[in-house]
Design a protein around this nucleic acid. Structure first.
Lengths: 127, 127
DNA sequence: CATAATGCCGACTTAATTAGTAGGTTAAAG
DNA sequence: CTTTAACCTACTAATTAAGTCGGCATTATG
């Protein structure tokens, strides 16, 4: 139960976009500021763009910017993109896990709900 | 952010100990019931024993049993053992992360606290 | 005592995931 | 027509999780 560095990088990078006030921020500058590999950032931002969290301008003077004001971007949505699908707990077989989900499964859902609650109440502004 | 199968196995195995009513339950029987590899269970239970969550009787008719009533064993403590150290988020360098922890770090702590709260309020009885 | 069932221990292998790299193409600005 | 940016795909390396193996120690029981 830990966050990947991908998530750490992503949140730090996104807060850079907001910080500068510029329209578009190049990943090269983010990479320099946050000391993250440019190539790695590029791939992360491809996902973030696909998920409509950021938009991009091509060409010189181009770069990335938030698709919405920071206050409207939920950490939950960002983290789902960066951490990948939150895989539901799967019990090994029908004998162990009842149709409605086994006891362990139920606890897992409960924990997930509380996590979701926190993350849906925080936006990039909370950073 | 997901639980390892180790945690899944562990919780399922522990609930077996409680279920039967017997004093000591052999891992061989748990392995059979829950369809988990015996060798893997053995290693998990070594950790659980070290953490004083279970106790064991040696020899024939031996086996494992809960060190305390199920209602007194917090899921939090079990999960810490099975998932390993909950590593605190580490920012890359001082320039980015302020002495008191950077903004991303602060969110992480908050999430962790809410998780902790849920897990400390649940015991093996909740399964 | 001999045997079988059990926990105990450490080294090893394999599989999966995460992290990071390389090398190029396309678009816009000046 | 050069420079700086996003964009794209494939590859490698590192780390962690999952699972296996072989043998030893302890104890109940016939």
């Amino acid at each position: 139960m830990k966050f990947s560095t991908r998530t750490e990088y992503g949140l730090r990078a996104l807060s850079q976009l907001d910080k500068t006030g510029k329209k578009a921020v190049s990943l090269a500058s983010v990479a320099k500021e946050e000391k993250i590999s440019l190539a790695y950032l590029e791939r992360m931002f491809a996902s973030l763009k696909k998920a409509k969290i950021v938009k991009a301008d091509l060409g010189k003077k181009g770069g990335y910017y938030l698709a919405k004001p920071a206050g409207q971007i939920k950490l939950f949505d960002v983290i789902i993109v960066l951490e990948g699908d939150v895989k539901p707990y799967k019990c090994a077989d029908g004998a162990v896990c009842k149709p409605g989900g086994c006891s362990v499964h139920r606890i897992w859902v409960e924990i997930y709900k509380s996590l979701e609650k926190v993350l849906k109440n925080k936006t990039l502004n909370s950073l």
